[in-house]
Amino acid sequence: MTMRNNTDAAGADVAQAETACVNETWRAWLLSDQPHSRTQARLGCFYRTWAAFLENRLAVFGLAIVLGLVLMATFADVLAPTSPVVGGDLRTERLLPPSAAHWFGTDDQARDLFSRIVHGARLTLLVVALVALIATPIGLLVGTVAGYFGGLIDQALMRVTDIFLAFPRLILALAFVAALGPGIENAILAIAITSWPPYARIARAETLTIRNADYINAVRLQGASSLRIIWGHIVPLCISSVIIRVTLDMAGIILTAAGLGFLGLGAQPPLPEWGAMVASGRRYLIDYWWVATVPGIAIFVVSLGFNLLGDGLRDVFDPKAQK
């Protein structure tokens, strides 16, 4: 009996050693200073960055929140116990406090707040993703083109950027939504239109520091076109600082979307948009605090997550901010 136990234990030990060994080989392969292929070199670079990122506990926490948001949005149908739009019995289930049946309570339409929060994650993620996808390329393009060519092109592009920067974002977004009509799509468009100028500025500043570098001169001397130089050589160096800024701006974007929703210009009822939920809960704030507070906490947590993630990315990508 003891013998068998011993052999079992020994077997387990061997298995453990083997996995450790395999892990060790992987690590060595990734960290090899003599990569054998383009993919290995790239993965090695990625692994180093990832390892540096993992050392920052708060950033990992931020990443976990963001991943949680993504998972919640993906599996909203499974996670939500009831429909986010259709409420229960208006006579008995209105404005119930948090309980085992309704984790976050119910709102004035007798809808389960937990289900609405879970489905609202989809809207929040939609806003954040679409704004990032629209605003980042515009900002990068305007900034790198202005910085690379300089002269009149720079003047023209940066003055347009300055005009957009001269308005507070929410006010400009309000004007756009007023012109385009209320709704979540128009809110996204308005936020995207108002959030690219800072990215253009960052991209331009980065481009100005590298456009006269010898490695850019070298590729110019090989006869590369401006498009090739900007896309293949300048954008890869600007993109990390722009991504950092976009991540840090995510919180602001969520808040702007929530603000538009709160003012009734963003998502329209009965969509479970967090900002609109805060607005509708405002009327019951004193007696039924959870109706406005729970979506508020959701906005707060997700904004915090994006900020922590952005800080972590900055620590990893920005060589000037290294401790």
Partner: peptide, 14 residues
């Protein structure tokens, strides 16, 4: 073609 002075500045870091 040209070879530049500073080998630390003449190769693209990424």
């Amino acid at each position: 073609q040209m070879v530049f002075q500073d080998p630390y500045g003449s190769l693209h870091p990424r």
